[in-house]
């Protein structure tokens, strides 16, 4: 299966694929400003959805996106590339920055300190505190399991289940489209193992 027609989850952004897709703006005469603005408007919300899945914190996500778009602002040549390429680059940079943050011990400590407070505010639906705690625990377990999956596989998994196509995943990770399926299968296997282990730990009496 190719997967490009697979139903997408939660990106909330209309998107077309491939280098032949229409670009948001090409303005050779006026160059940078409108092009960058258009790229920002187009990719910011989408990238927010992706990076938030890694960080689980709106403010950290905003900060990470600032870093990513600063890098894009400095890459004048990249901005002239087709949208699909810029999008893939932004996803790659965004994920790298996000996982770097996760790795940072200081950030991790701070996150632990405020996980209850912020995640409740950010994530919980209006279905009561018990449900909210349960969801928070589940999210924490999913993030921990993801953290144990090898980096490449983890990114593939996250992208796929965030609604990205095989073509987009391949472009983001810099691999052949034909390799995505294998990588994804490995990633899902690894995730299952780690997630079950966490569930097992959770069920063990202390």
């Amino acid at each position: 299966m190719n997967g490009d027609n697979h139903q997408r989850h939660g990106r909330g952004v209309l998107k077309t694929d491939g280098p032949t897709s229409p670009t948001v703006h090409d303005e050779p005469a006026n160059g940078y400003v409108p092009r960058f603005d258009a790229l920002f408007a187009r990719f910011y919300p989408e990238l927010f959805g992706l990076v938030y899945r890694v960080l689980g914190d709106r403010m950290e996500t905003e900060d990470t996106l600032q870093e990513a778009f600063l890098k894009l602002a400095e890459a004048a040549e990249l901005q002239s590339r087709p949208d699909a390429e810029v999008g893939a680059w932004l996803r790659r940079v965004g994920l790298n920055l996000a996982f770097n943050r996760v790795r940072s011990a200081r950030r991790a400590r701070e996150r632990l300190q405020r996980v209850g407070r912020l995640e409740a505010g950010d994530d919980s639906s209006a279905s009561g505190p018990a449900r909210s705690v349960e969801l928070d625990e589940q999210r924490a377990a999913v993030r921990r399991a993801l953290a144990d999956v090898p980096e490449r596989q983890r990114e593939c998994l996250l992208l796929r289940h965030s609604g990205y196509s095989y073509t987009e995943i391949a472009a983001t990770l810099g691999i052949a489209v034909g390799s995505v399926g294998v990588l994804l299968a490995r990633a899902e296997d690894a995730f299952r193992v780690h997630y079950r282990r966490l569930e097992g730990d959770h069920d063990q009496p202390i």
Binding site: H9, R53, G56, R58, L157, F191
Partner: peptide
Amino acid sequence: TQPDISALIASLAPERLP
């Protein structure tokens, strides 16, 4: 018995996009 990976990762999504 398999965890629904798609649903689990979907649970990480923000409640709303900016």
